[in-house]
Design a protein around this nucleic acid. Structure first.
Lengths: 225, 225
DNA sequence: TAGTGTGAATGGATTCACAGCC
DNA sequence: GGCTGTGAATCCATTCACACTA
């Protein structure tokens, strides 16, 4: 599928998801084609960057016209692997876990939550809020469920001190990729990709950027914007 | 504070947060010093990268010894701006908002949630779950509350179709940085930094990486790992 | 005319390699 | 011996510029 298996830059892959999101919006608005310039304006990227990114995977554009929105959506979905449905599981039925299991955005992209696990004996067997077909399972079910439901991706939403242990068990059970919410560095075999979101770290990054643009320093607020 | 206001690469800033997280762990374990090599091993980075990152801000290391853990923690906190407390607010008291308002990790890093807003009239005035001191406020309170509580950062956890409107109102109210959970590109003035987390996009990225390392293609699973 | 695809040029970030210090 | 700080070299990603096409 890719043009001849050269190496594709990681930033390109990240942007592909953004292109897709924007293209899906255009599709809703019944736009049939879009140029790299227009896409770039919406996403604050240069047009040449978009063309180069897409060119890694083939030639989809029509000179003078632009890209076909529908075709490009299918293509990017295929590249990213979301043209098929992925079964996913969730470990950790706390506050965050509950919110994630209720989130509709996953299913919209083809990620189907098919199992929820927790280590708290009091929670085992209780239904998952906002997804009444699922019951919370014990971690001892992990291997069997992963095999039976052909699950490749897992969301890890347990507290920091349990995260590494849970991650190890996920990998042992056959999980191939982990979406990690615990504020720790998971130490896993390199073949198991990990995508981490550390909520507090993100805020920290914001606070830095805010201070850059607003040199408040050690004094009280100076309100000359 | 920085060594003479040269430009600091964005990736360096991102890594600073990871260094800090790791250093705080070492601090718990009562490690007094750490070398760039050790830090690098834990975070899967090269030692020279860590030294270069830190050198942007001054000279903290001792040749032959390494870096003083406690001192480096204070320094990075100061650089990132988290040596002081930031008041933050949250808009959107749905599932995700509830989980975020219950999250302890923010306070641990010095981010104090002091107000929660929602547009649903039925929710106005009800207490915030897991934070009984706060009551959900209407968006019309925004300007006043931001001013009175000196809030600079906002978490935007409203549905996609409301996100841009809410973001505009946040900026108008004086918010300086937005942590955005809606799966849309916010179009804001460049001076207002935005840090976005799109949960579905992250899973998409994972699915791509999994397919890279596990060429399953269009056939059934091939189980020669 | 409007817009793609792509080699060449540029710009940034990472790694190397080593002088200097504990 | 162990480790930092930093110029130089390398590597990688982005942007430029233009031939080419509808």
């Amino acid at each position: 599928m890719t043009k001849n298996d050269q190496h594709i830059p990681a930033p390109t892959i990240r942007r592909l998801s953004l292109y897709l999101r924007q293209l899906e919006m255009l599709w809703m608005e019944e736009k049939k084609t879009v140029s790299s310039k227009d896409l770039g304006k919406a996403l604050r990227l240069t047009d040449s960057q978009i063309r180069k990114d897409l060119a890694y995977f083939g030639q989809f554009g029509q000179p003078g016209i632009g890209y076909d929105v529908g075709e490009l959506i299918s293509t990017i979905r295929h590249i990213l692997g979301t043209d098929q449905t992925w079964n996913i599981l969730l470990v950790g039925a706390g506050n965050l876990g509950a919110a994630l299991s209720a989130y509709r955005g996953f299913a919209k992209k083809g990620f189907q939550l098919v199992a929820v696990f927790d280590s708290d004996p009091k929670k085992i067997g209780t239904p998952v809020p906002a997804n009444r077909e699922l019951k919370i399972q014990p971690l001892t079910d992990l291997n069997q469920t992963v095999r039976e439901r052909d699950i490749r991706l897992a969301i890890n939403a347990v507290p920091a001190d349990a995260a590494q242990d849970v991650a190890d068990r996920l990998v042992a059970a056959g999980i191939r990729g982990i979406f990690n919410f615990a504020p720790v560095n998971l130490d896993l075999a390199a073949e198991v990709p990990v995508s981490s979101v550390d909520l507090a770290v993100q805020l920290e990054q914001l606070s830095f950027q805010v201070r850059l643009s607003a040199p408040v320093d050690d004094r009280d607020q100076a309100d000359h914007a």
